Amino acid sequence: MLYDTDRRILRRWQGDPDLAPSDLAAALDLPAATVTRRIERLREAGILRGVHAVIDWAALGYAVQVSLRIQLDKSAPRAFDAFAAAAREIPEVTEIQTFLGRVDLRLDVIARDMAHWQALYRDRILTLPHIAEIEALMHVATVKTDATLPI
């Protein structure tokens, strides 16, 4: 259960995640000890799982981003586990999501350029186990990205 103070902390921290707990306390006009204690409770409850760095992959030379929709051959026992374990080993795979429906998994993959993407696709992606069908969607632009919640 979230209290109003917890909601205030989370709302403010989502808006400015670089704030240190003491600065967060000052911005909310709360004692630093209260904010620190509530942050710890939010972590213990699994509500606040961590603070993440957001990396601009393009600034590091990764100009290509592809989303892969994958259907697995589900006739093979443990196909999902084998596929997921192998996909985790590819450093350029930045996200793996599972779905119910026609698509079983979605992978986000980054590459430096089209030549790197082609080699990665041919040598690493297509060799992943139990793929029945694969669809590649080339990322063109991000229209909206927002991980904040309306708390």
Rank of each mutant, 00 (worst) to 15 (best):
residue 34 T to P: 01
residue 34 T to N: 15
residue 35 V to D: 04
residue 35 V to F: 07
residue 35 V to C: 15
residue 37 R to W: 11
residue 38 R to W: 14
residue 38 R to P: 01
residue 39 I to S: 10
residue 39 I to T: 15
residue 41 R to A: 13
residue 41 R to F: 04
residue 41 R to M: 11
residue 42 L to C: 14
residue 42 L to S: 12
residue 43 R to V: 04
residue 43 R to N: 05
residue 43 R to L: 02
residue 45 A to T: 06
residue 45 A to Q: 13
residue 47 I to W: 08
residue 48 L to R: 07
residue 48 L to Y: 10
residue 49 R to I: 15
residue 49 R to E: 14
residue 51 V to C: 12
residue 51 V to W: 05
residue 52 H to T: 15
residue 52 H to W: 03
residue 53 A to S: 09
residue 54 V to R: 02
residue 55 I to E: 13
residue 56 D to H: 04
residue 57 W to V: 14
residue 59 A to T: 10
residue 59 A to H: 11
residue 60 L to T: 02
residue 60 L to W: 04
residue 60 L to H: 08
residue 61 G to Y: 02
residue 62 Y to L: 11
residue 62 Y to R: 07
residue 62 Y to E: 08
residue 63 A to E: 11
residue 63 A to F: 09
residue 65 Q to D: 10
residue 66 V to N: 09
residue 66 V to S: 03
residue 66 V to P: 05
residue 68 L to W: 01
residue 68 L to T: 00
residue 69 R to P: 01
residue 71 Q to T: 13
residue 72 L to M: 05
residue 73 D to R: 07
residue 74 K to T: 06
residue 75 S to P: 01
residue 75 S to M: 05
residue 75 S to F: 07
residue 76 A to P: 02
residue 76 A to G: 09
residue 77 P to T: 10
residue 77 P to H: 01
residue 78 R to A: 12
residue 78 R to M: 03
residue 79 A to K: 10
residue 79 A to V: 11
residue 79 A to L: 07
residue 80 F to G: 14
residue 81 D to N: 12
residue 82 A to E: 15
residue 83 F to R: 03
residue 84 A to E: 03
residue 85 A to M: 09
residue 85 A to V: 12
residue 86 A to T: 13
residue 86 A to W: 02
residue 86 A to K: 14
residue 88 R to C: 03
residue 89 E to V: 01
residue 89 E to T: 08
residue 90 I to R: 06
residue 90 I to F: 07
residue 91 P to S: 09
residue 91 P to M: 00
residue 91 P to Y: 12
residue 93 V to H: 10
residue 95 E to G: 03
residue 96 I to P: 02
residue 97 Q to F: 06
residue 98 T to E: 06
residue 98 T to M: 13
residue 99 F to E: 06
residue 99 F to K: 06
residue 99 F to P: 14
residue 100 L to T: 10
residue 102 R to L: 03
residue 104 D to W: 02
residue 104 D to Y: 05
residue 104 D to L: 05
residue 105 L to V: 14
residue 106 R to H: 08
residue 108 D to K: 12
residue 109 V to F: 04
residue 109 V to W: 01
residue 109 V to C: 14
residue 110 I to F: 04
